[in-house]
C-alpha cells in the first residue's frame, strides 16, 4: 500500500512580522517549519505504515528550500520525499496548487491513500485537499479525527463534521484530511535524523510533469483567484480597565456594566 502525505512548509507563525502601517507580511524574518496540521497527517500515515507495511511518500510544492521540510518528514518516518519546484509554480492559489499536486500524484506508479492537514497556517483555506481529490476524481473525507479500520480496499474513519461524528467507510484510492485531535506527532529519533540527512529528495519541475500538466494550469496563470491587496488590521483596542487591588469593588463595577449591557439580568 502507498500513502502520500501532502505537506507544506510554512513560516513559523510566532515569528512572522505583520506591518499594519504598510500592509505587508515579512516572512523572511521567521524561520520555517512543517505546517503543524501536516505533522498530524504524517503521523497518521506512519502509524498506518507500521501496521500494514506500507510506503509513505511525502510531497510538497514549494521553493527549493522546502527540501528541508521533506528531509524532516523522513526523519519523522516517511520513506521518500518529492519536491515539486519550478518558477512556473509560483503565485499559485489553491486551485493551481491542487492541480499541480494532483498531477504529480498521477505520475506515481500507484497510490491508495492521500492524507493532508485540515488547513495550512499561512494559506489558511483548507481547500487544497478536497481540490486535489476532485482533480484525481477520488472521494474525500474531511476533518478525520480517528482511523478505525483498514481493509484491502477500504478505510474506515471518523469524520467530525456537521456538529456530529460520523463513521465513514471509503473506497481506495481516497483522500482524507486530519485534525490535530487524531494523534500526537512523535519527535524524530536520532537515528532517523541521521538517515534523513543523507536521504535523496526527488525534485520534479514542470518539465517532469509535462505528460500530465499544461503550463497554463499552474502558478499565477492557473490561478483564478487574485489577491488585490492585503491589509494588516491594527489590534482592536478595548476599553481595557485593569485592576490589581481592591478586586471586590471592581467586580461590582463589572456586574453593573453587565447589567447595563443586558448581559446580566438586573
Amino acid at each position: 500500500m502507498n500513502i502520500v502525505v501532502l505537506l507544506k512548509q510554512v513560516p513559523d507563525m510566532e515569528k512572522v512580522k505583520f506591518d499594519s502601517e504598510r500592509g505587508v507580511v515579512d516572512r523572511k524574518s521567521a524561520g520555517t517549519e512543517i505546517n503543524p496540521f501536516d505533522l498530524n497527517a504524517l503521523e497518521a500515515a506512519v502509524q498506518i505504515s507500521e501496521k500494514l507495511q506500507s510506503q509513505v511518500i511525502s510531497m510538497t510544492m514549494g521553493p527549493p528550500s522546502a527540501e528541508e521540510a521533506l528531509k524532516e518528514s523522513i526523519a519523522r518516518g516517511a520513506n521518500d520525499g518529492i519536491l515539486l519546484t519550478d518558477r512556473a509554480f509560483g503565485g499559485a492559489d489553491t486551485k493551481a496548487t491542487a492541480v499541480t499536486l494532483a498531477n504529480a500524484v498521477k505520475k506515481l506508479s500507484s497510490y491508495d491513500l492521500i492524507i493532508c492537514g485540515e488547513k495550512s497556517v499561512d494559506g489558511d483555506t483548507g481547500q487544497v485537499g478536497a481540490e486535489v481529490a476532485e482533480f484525481l476524481d477520488i472521494p474525500h473525507v474531511y476533518y478525520v479525527d480517528e482511523v478505525r479500520k483498514i481493509e484491502e480496499d477500504y478505510i474506515t474513519v471518523v469524520s467530525n463534521i456537521c456538529g456530529g461524528r460520523y463513521i465513514k467507510r471509503v473506497k481506495f484510492p481516497a483522500l482524507i484530511s486530519v485534525t490535530k485531535d487524531i494523534n500526537t506527532p512523535r519527535l524524530p529519533s536520532l537515528r532517523n535524523k541521521m538517515m534523513a540527512r543523507k536521504a535523496e529528495i526527488k525534485k520534479w519541475s514542470i518539465d517532469d510533469l509535462k505528460e500530465y500538466l499544461n503550463p497554463e494550469e499552474v502558478g499565477l496563470k492557473g490561478s483564478p483567484t487574485r489577491v488585490k491587496r492585503i491589509e494588516v488590521p491594527p489590534e482592536i483596542k478595548r476599553q481595557g480597565k485593569v485592576c490589581r487591588n481592591n478586586i471586590s469593588s471592581f467586580v461590582d463595577e463589572i456586574f453593573k456594566a453587565l447589567k447595563e449591557n443586558k448581559i446580566l439580568e438586573g
Binding site: V25, D124, T125, T225, R226, V227, E231, V232
Partner: peptide, 16 residues
C-alpha cells in the same frame, strides 16, 4: 478574508 492565522486581511478577486 483573514489569512496567515487571522493576522492579515486579503482582498481577493476571482477571474472565473
Amino acid at each position: 478574508r483573514p489569512a496567515f492565522s487571522d493576522n492579515i486581511l486579503a482582498h481577493i478577486h476571482t477571474v472565473t
